[in-house]
Design a protein around this nucleic acid. Sequence first.
DNA 1: AAGAAGATTCGCT
DNA 2: GCGAATCTTCTTA
Length: 162
Amino acid sequence: MSGRVVETEAYPPGDASGHAYRGRTASNQTLFLDRGFAYVYFIYGTSYMLNVTAEEPGVGAGVLLRAIEPLQGINLMKCFRKTDKLRDLARGPGRLAAALQIDKRLDGVDLCAEGPLWLGTAVRETAHILTTVRIGITREVRRRLRFFEADSPFVSGRSTTA
DNA sequence: AAGAAGATTCGCT
DNA sequence: GCGAATCTTCTTA
């Protein structure tokens, strides 16, 4: 399975809405790995979230992957997501994780190396990117750290307020 | 030790 | 559009 990332949110060092804000704990330790590792956590009793670490070792920061455009393995994703709607397969962070069968086993995986999950570089030129406030958080609400492709139908949330 | 909040999703009205 | 589902973690007693 594969897809193109079309929507992300940043959680920089010291951001009060980030999981690393209150320091390193057993549950958020993978956030403090070197750049390019997976940080996976479970929330609301229903959804897994996939983050990519974004700072040097010892600094807790990451990027939440909120949506992808499904490319390969679409039938498999439909099976995991229990829906036939292409647009709903990975539109939203919890859905993305469900479509790719991401769970705690992938926490701490090196996304820049050969393995069960990895990130590559797109050949396509960068599309038109817009920024908005982040979705679903309650602190540092004003920071505009959500990034998404303006013309992609696979982004979640409202595409307003660019 | 108990309670509340949380980077959400789904189903029903 | 609203509220329930449902688990992990942090906070407070």
